[in-house]
Structure formats: C-alpha cells, structure tokens
Amino acid sequence: MTAPDPPPSHPAHGLRARWRQVRRLPFTLMLASLLAGLGIVQLTFQLGNLGYRSVTWVRETRETQERVASLERDVRVLEEAAAAAQSPAYLEQLARCQGFVGAEEDVIVAVGAPETPGENCAVRRVP
C-alpha cells in the first residue's frame, strides 16, 4: 500500500505568496540601485583622492630630492673648505687676502692709499 497523497494546498495561498514576492521586488530593486549608486559615489571619491595624493606625493618627493641635492652640495663645499684649511698654500693665500706680507717682502704703499685697506680677495660663502 502506498501512503495517501497530501491534500492539495489551496491555490489562493500559493498565489498570495507569489504576489508578496512580486510586491517586494520594486523595493528590493530600489534598495539595490541605491546601494550601487552609493558605491559608485564612494569609488569616484576614492579615485579622486588617490589622484590628488599621487600628485602631492610626486611634488613633495621632487622638493625633497632638490633639498637633499642642495645639502649634498653644501657638505661638499664644507669638506673642500675643511681640507683647504689644512693646506699651507691656502693659509698663505688667506693671509695675503687679509693684507699680510712675507718676512722677506717689501711693502709698497701708494701715495693716495686709504688709511684702512679693504679685503683684496672675494669672499666665498660657506654654508
């Protein structure tokens, strides 16, 4: 013997369930569209922010590299000045710039020379 078939469900009950699903469909689509729109807005903002940060980063990197190059030049000049400060030829040249003369040299002064002489050499900037 086979088990009796269950009584058929009321056709109106199945129809109502389907109608509720159909009525919810527009709300679900509107909600999905709203969320998709918000996602697009957020993506657009993030892409714009990424572009702005990239441009800013490139500019600041370039400025930093220029500053580093300037500081490296200053270090090189200072190292050259420190090395030259130990050289007897440089010290003699510096003394001559300040008006000193050697022990066996004669000093000749012009008739119209000023009382306080100025520097004979150009001043070099040291960083």
Rank of each mutant, 00 (worst) to 15 (best):
A81D: 03
V109E: 07
Q42I: 11
V77G: 00
E79V: 09
R53D: 11
D74L: 07
V68G: 01
S33V: 11
S33Y: 03
A36Y: 06
E105Q: 14
V101H: 15
L31C: 07
A113D: 06
T64A: 15
P11E: 06
A110Q: 12
Q21I: 09
E80D: 13
Q42C: 04
S70N: 06
A83D: 12
T64W: 01
Q86E: 14
A110V: 01
R67W: 04
A85E: 13
S33W: 04
L34P: 01
L35G: 09
L15D: 13
P114V: 04
L25K: 08
F27Y: 10
R24T: 06
L71I: 11
E115H: 04
A83R: 15
E72F: 01
L91S: 08
G99F: 09
E60V: 09
A85Y: 08
G99D: 06
S70I: 04
A81W: 05
G37Q: 05
R62A: 15
R53K: 08
A81Y: 04
G14Q: 13
E66V: 07
G37R: 05
P11H: 08
G102V: 02
S9M: 05
R16M: 09
V77L: 13
L31A: 15
C97H: 09
V68W: 03
A82D: 07
G99L: 04
P114C: 03
D106S: 12
Q46H: 02
V75L: 15
F27N: 06
W19K: 13
T61N: 11
P8A: 14
T44V: 15
Y90D: 04
D74S: 10
L38R: 03
R23Q: 14
E104N: 13
F100W: 12
L15V: 05
G37P: 02
G51E: 10
G112C: 01
V55L: 06
S87C: 01
Q98I: 00
A17P: 00
A82G: 01
P6C: 02
Q93H: 08
S87G: 00
V22F: 07
R62M: 08
A69K: 09
Q42K: 10
G102Q: 11
E105Y: 04
P11W: 10
E92M: 03
L91K: 12
G48W: 02
V58L: 10
Q65V: 09
G14C: 02
A12N: 08
Q42N: 13
A83N: 10
R59W: 01
Q93I: 02
F27G: 15
E66A: 12
P7V: 04
E92S: 06
P88M: 04
G51Y: 01
F27L: 13
S70C: 00
G51T: 11
S70V: 04
C97E: 05
A103R: 10
V77C: 00
A85Q: 09
V41Q: 06
E79W: 10
T44E: 07
P8G: 03
T28I: 10
D74V: 14
F100Y: 11
A82H: 03
T64H: 07
Q65C: 00
G14H: 12
A103L: 12
V111Q: 11
V111E: 15
P88L: 05
F27W: 06
A85G: 10
V107P: 02
R73M: 06
P8W: 09
A83T: 14
G99N: 06
E80G: 05
R20N: 13
P6G: 02
